[in-house]
Design a protein around this nucleic acid. Sequence first.
DNA 1: AATCTCAGCAACCGCCCCAAG
DNA 2: GCTTGGGGCGGTTGCTGAGAT
Length: 243
Amino acid sequence: MGRSPCCEKEHTNKGAWTKEEDERLVAYIRAHGEGCWRSLPKAAGLLRCGKSCRLRWINYLRPDLKRGNFTADEDDLIIKLHSLLGNKWSLIAARLPGRTDNEIKNYWNTHIRRKLLGRGIDPVTHRPVNAAAATISFHPQPPPTTKEEQLILSKPPKCPDLNLDLCISPPSCQEEDDDYEAKPAMIVRAPELQRRRGGLCFGCSLGLQKECKCSGGGAGAGAGNNFLGLRAGMLDFRSLPMK
DNA sequence: AATCTCAGCAACCGCCCCAAG
DNA sequence: GCTTGGGGCGGTTGCTGAGAT
C-alpha cells in the first residue's frame, strides 16, 4: 500500500505540451494565481498531471523567464555556485534571475561539464582531475562509533573561505546589520538589505550590471562588490573553450 | 538523398520535506 | 508522535533537429 498517485495516469496527457494547453494554463494562472497544483488541471480544463502543469509553468511559461544563451557572467556564476552548493540546482537558479533549475541543470550537463572536463577539471569536485584522483584514500577511516563522532561527521566541515550563506549583498557588509543573524537567510536578507542599504540591485551585487542607477553603480563599483570572487577574477573560467 | 549519430532540451519519475490534521 | 497530502527537487528519459557520413 503506497501513497496514492498524484493524478489519474490513465486520464492525463503526457509528452509535449500543445499551444492550446499552454494558453489554458497561462490564462488560468493569470486569473487565479499559482498554487494548488493538484486541483489546477481540472479547474483549468487540462488533462494533465498537476506536477506537469507546475513544471510547464515554472520552466517555460512564466513571464519573467529569460530565454536565450547564457552569458559568460552567468557561466562564471553557475560554476562558482556549483562549486559551493553541488547539484542544488534550485538554489543555484535562485541566484540567476530569469533562469530555471531545469535550464541550469541542462546547461551544466551539456556545456559546462564538458568545458571543465576539457580543461582537466573534475566537474564534481572542481579540482584538477589528477588531484581529485590523488585524494582517494586506500586507508579509509573506520565508521563513527560514538554518538559524538556521528554528530561531528554529520555536520559539514567548517571552511572559513566559503560563505555558504550566499547572501546577495557583499559579504563584507554583514557586520553593519545589528539584527543580521536574526533574519532567515534567502527570504529576508537580500531584498531587505538592498532596501536598507540604499538599493544595491541584484545585478550589481553579482557584478553583472554594466551601468546601473543603484548605489552599486555598475560592475565593480563598490569596494565590497566581490560576490563569490567575481570581481577579483577568482575562479575565472571565462577563458575556457566551449566544447 | 538517405541514413546515422549525437547534442540539446523539455518533460517525466520517484523520492524527500514539511505542514496540517 | 503518526499519517497523509501537496509541493519541490534532482536524476533520468526520450524526442527533435543539426551535422556527419
